[in-house]
Write a protein that binds this DNA or RNA. Structure first.
Length: 212
DNA sequence: ATCCCGAGGG
DNA sequence: CCCTCTGGAT
């Protein structure tokens, strides 16, 4: 599929392109990051960052979110889309974290997935960014698309398969940052509709460019 | 019409 | 595997 040397070149070039600013969703409290990621479903991070300041000012603690009126939460997050499900999940997950996890965000995939509205993508992001778990792969839409184009995966869109395939080629201590760089690269250069290959320095190692 | 750092349910 | 949930941007 892909030579180890090529993978290293891709990893190093991405580090050069995106040395820092690894996550555009940055929140002081783990549960705030969790809910920001939930809100980011089918919505840009930019828009999420527009609604969260007011939301977390109105509901400044996990307890206040657990007791919140769902319809009031809906108003704060309306513009992020899917607002009914998201609001319901935020309140329900707050209650579960208080009642079953001592008011903390869980640190295992199994427990994270029990929280309403938390799927693999959100769980992996928490495991990587909050708990710094080695070998975490966040297979979101950008990661799946770009690694598929590069040829780091076989082109599958199944997130679990992408996770597995990337874990086999990426150094465990690099995988989380690599995924964040996929997001940055996906927004700036390797867009879904019209990838800007002319301005992409990953060209030498990219199947999508080389074979088209 | 298609996409945005998805998740849940059938 | 499929579908639905939803608003906003391009």
């Amino acid at each position: 599929m892909k030579q180890h040397e090529d993978v290293c070149s891709i990893v190093e070039e991405l580090k050069r392109l995106y040395p820092d600013g690894l996550c555009s969703l940055q929140y002081p409290k783990p549960y705030e990051l969790l809910f920001a990621v939930r809100l980011a479903a089918q919505c840009t991070d930019e828009r999420v960052n527009m609604v969260t300041p007011a939301l977390f000012a109105r509901f400044p603690t996990l307890e206040s979110l657990a007791e919140a009126d769902v319809s009031e939460v809906e108003q704060y997050i309306h513009s992020t889309g899917f607002f009914r499900a998201k609001a319901r999940d935020i309140v329900a997950a707050s209650r579960m974290m208080l009642e079953e996890y001592g008011g903390r965000v869980p640190d295992t995939m199994e427990e994270l997935l029990k929280l309403p509205g938390v799927g693999r993508k959100t769980a992996n992001l928490i495991l990587g960014d909050v708990y710094h778990t080695p070998g975490v792969v966040v297979a979101d839409t950008h990661c799946i698309r770009i690694t598929g184009r590069l040829g780091l995966t076989d082109g599958t869109k199944d997130p679990v398969k992408v996770e597995q395939q990337l874990r086999q080629v990426l150094p465990p201590e690099e995988s989380n940052d690599f995924c964040h760089r996929m997001v940055l690269h996906g927004r700036a250069v390797c867009m879904a509709r019209k990838p800007d290959c002319a301005n992409c320095t990953l060209r030498p190692w990219c199947d999508f460019y080389t074979k088209s």
